[in-house]
């Protein structure tokens, strides 16, 4: 069951697998440096008090991403 959504729509507490990065240039490099290659498992942990950015669990570290960046990461949220 395919269920591809941008990462910023992933509910808190849920995990998903990275499918695609829809950006290029510097942002893409930054995200790749964090190890966000396809099939990387990523978990939405919590939002900052004002609702943005959101903290994600990525490869053993906690990284905060603004919704602008997170929306450029497409994830598959089924069966993780």
């Amino acid at each position: 069951m395919e269920n591809v959504i941008p990462l910023n729509l992933l509910p808190l507490g849920k995990s998903a697998r990275v499918k695609k990065l829809v950006c290029d240039g510097n942002i893409r490099r930054r995200l790749l440096d964090l190890g966000l290659i396809s099939n990387t498992v990523i978990e939405a942990l919590q939002k900052s008090p004002s609702g943005d950015p959101t903290a994600y669990h990525i490869r053993g570290t906690v990284i905060a991403l603004r919704s602008e960046e997170a929306s450029k990461i497409l994830v598959e949220s089924s069966q993780v």
Binding site: I27, R30, P53, T61, V62, I63, A64, R66, E68, E69
Partner: peptide
Amino acid sequence: VPSSFTLELP
């Protein structure tokens, strides 16, 4: 406009 932003929470 604001540029990309990633912040580690150690």
